[in-house]
Amino acid sequence: MRDSKSTRLVFGAGSVVLALALTTAIIALTGNDPIAAYRNIAQGAAGSPNVAANVVVSWVPLLLVVSGVLFTFTVGLWNIGIEGQITLGAIFATWAMRLLQDSAMAPGWVIAASIAAGILGGVLWALLAGALKTFGGVNEIFGGLGLNFVATALNLWLIFGPWKRPGVASMSGTLPFAERLWMPTVSPQSRLAPVPLGLALAAIAIAFTLLKGTYFGLRLKAVGRNPTSAYRLGIPTWQHMMLSFALCGAFAGVAGAVQVTSVYHRLIPSISSGYGYTGLMVAMLVNFSPAAAAPVALFFAALNVGAIQLPIVLKLDSSLAGVIQGFLVLFVLVGNGIRTRLLARRKGAL
């Protein structure tokens, strides 16, 4: 076997086929028709301009998150805390909105300030995880996981405490903002907003450029591969780790702010909607390559949106999308592992 594009392609295709086969088997086992389920997902994701727009709405935060975790993965860190960073972005965005909603400021500026506040929140939460790692010796996975729980608790406390709806607090979140402060959409009926889409595309473009073309990206890569050698080559190691945390937190913060200003128009309990974990999966699936991240994130968003109709039409749970995504990631990772082992055996390294 040779390490070439074609063997990679064969292994990649094989992984996808296996993931689909296993999902099909599971649907069949539950007594449902797999073809009908897939058709339903496809229709749910692309059957009308409206659902297609919903896919793009869901693509935006996912793409932002993936752009962020590409930095932390490159520098060798597992930023599990991304969920909390999205949540803090949403909280800070809501906070700015609440402060400014009754001011004389133009709606555009209020939304801009809200997104800037979201960035601040995401960065602060990410730097907290980074500081725990750098100065406290807490593994970023444990630190991030802990901070995720803290962020969720903080969010719930705000919704049921200081920011609760007049009268009775509710799981449906805070009181919606005035409609003039909603992010403008392409048309009054659509949820698709051009500004967040632009931000997401800019984010992945920034990630691609910084990681592939700059000395900064190369330094991140060096620190990720071998921090000791990188330090000896003159690269300030922990500073680069903190910087990548900050960048990732910034993108996560934008994602949180977009959910608040453009999708829900209020703060809700599950504001991060699992986009952080899905983003980590997408990054792993594309082997941390910025170029492949955008289309794969779009595909994942399509699966998520497409599966929403499943419970109504077929009495299947919409978590089927998660099953497909999980299998995909697992099989691609296993396929990569097997390919690497076969190559190593051929070289006689085993």
Binding site: T214, Y215, L218, R219, K221, R225, N226, S229, A230, L233
Partner: peptide, 27 residues
């Protein structure tokens, strides 16, 4: 050498790019 001096996974030219005092942002 590979543990504390060089960065496995990076090419020779990437090492020179890192060790040289680069001017500008883009490689």
């Amino acid at each position: 050498r590979l543990e504390k001096g060089l960065v496995p996974g990076l090419s020779l030219s990437e090492h020179y790019a890192l060790a040289g005092k680069p001017r500008g942002v883009f490689i």
